[in-house]
Design a protein around this nucleic acid. Sequence first.
DNA 1: TGTATGCTAGTGGTCAGACCTTTGAATTCC
DNA 2: GGAATTCAAAGGTCTGACCACTAGCATACA
Lengths: 280, 280
Amino acid sequence: MPKTKRDPSESDRTRQVVNHIRELLERGELRPGDKIPPERDLAKALKISRASLRTGIGYLAAMGVLNVRHGVGTFIHDGPAEFSKASLGFMSTLHGFQSWQMFEARRIIESSLAAMAAERSNDEHHVLLAEQVAEMFSIADDPAEFLKHDVQFHRTIAQASGNPILAALIETITSAMYEDRLKTVSRAHYLRKMAEMHRDIYRAIRSRDAAEAQKQMERHLQVAEDEQKSEVPPQRPQHPRSGQKRATTSSPEMPATHSATASAEGAGPESAQEANIPVQ
Amino acid sequence: MPKTKRDPSESDRTRQVVNHIRELLERGELRPGDKIPPERDLAKALKISRASLRTGIGYLAAMGVLNVRHGVGTFIHDGPAEFSKASLGFMSTLHGFQSWQMFEARRIIESSLAAMAAERSNDEHHVLLAEQVAEMFSIADDPAEFLKHDVQFHRTIAQASGNPILAALIETITSAMYEDRLKTVSRAHYLRKMAEMHRDIYRAIRSRDAAEAQKQMERHLQVAEDEQKSEVPPQRPQHPRSGQKRATTSSPEMPATHSATASAEGAGPESAQEANIPVQ
DNA sequence: TGTATGCTAGTGGTCAGACCTTTGAATTCC
DNA sequence: GGAATTCAAAGGTCTGACCACTAGCATACA
């Protein structure tokens, strides 16, 4: 498997910390949810300054391996595998990702996931999926609550697919889309339709019809995309970022079903304040 | 698009730095390849200590946004979008990813990419692809060199697909597999066969036959997988990570090409609490 | 008795400033 | 001209003090 290439951004001390944690992880002495020693202790044990240790911890936290809680401690990340949430956001502003591209990526990966789930899922998965579908039908008035089950439904399929890597990728993408989805999931008739589509997907998986599961999932996501586009059409245009270096200037318009819709991603609520630093 | 959820691992100062950089990026004042001000200057400008600034920089570097070079400076990452190389490696040890799963993920995504490339590529892409194929045929004795063109070929397809997100995902996966591939690409007859398959893929894309491109790509990756498995059969045993949370530890072997092993992980409550681990 | 309040130990967050190491390029010497 | 030297810039590390947040415990109050 991937034997972690040495990333240049890891300096000696940082790498020392990273390797230390990885070893403990590989040796099974540290598992998801576990707490690592206090910074002061660990720094002393590794014979490095607390500052350096913190650099390493920060690195691991950025990658989603560690979970730091002020006043409490630092823990090994526990939960579904996924890349750092912020990373996709940054890649987005850095490379000009667009909304339709996220939907497309999701459609492609998740429809495959559904097909795989149809072949590899077990009864336990079926039960979980059925439960989520049932919940979706019963809750037709609380968008936020509905979305929660929606997410869980898709997450279950990802898990049932037996491929945690693809599951992690889709988890990353969907979590990045979460906020926008919250705004979208609203109208009652829409929720009803969504519930029905999920049910259809569930049925296909349950009956181990991979092709059908894939098809239904694709249809479902296409509808979801169309719905969202119709609800949240206005988007702040992307930076032209006039490419000078063989820029990846993808054509702004794409074929049929997808119409480009640059994403906003405004500086959220809190966001920025002070400082206009003249970056040379 | 992704409204960067507030990541708990970002403390105030760190977030301040991150936001600052993001703003400059969004405002177009910073672009890939650009150098950011020296730490001492930037720290003063942001009115924070250099230590805190470094935390933020480390965070961004871990996410692959910044590229820090000792004695030179810190730059905005330049090059194909991808997630931090190390991240996949960590997720691997953290969630027990397996080799066949990486191949499977690659097969699924990249075959779709090929299909998309067939529909969206332009002449420029075709030229690049043709060049790489030609190089592959001419270089039949230098595995390392061959692999370089191989990588470039696939990267071009990813770019031609018009979906940078999927391109980034595949970039992440392939870079994680790079080392193992270096060991594999060796036998001359194998290189020859590879070159031919790449040529077939190219032809399909060139003739805009999406279905064929997808099929050829899938076949190509399947062959590559089989080849590698036959050469590097010994797999480092995975941690049993005895699932206590309804881990669906199915039998390690599965139908034909895939063997499913459901991942543990439960969306459920945190469960496992503290427990000070004696991390040596 | 039960709840509210306040204190405190533990742990991460920030700061300041000195010193070390690596780079890259200008300078000097042969 | 080319090689060795010098030097300034910029990142890397260290120390140790102090701040801030959490959770749990003890005390006070109703």
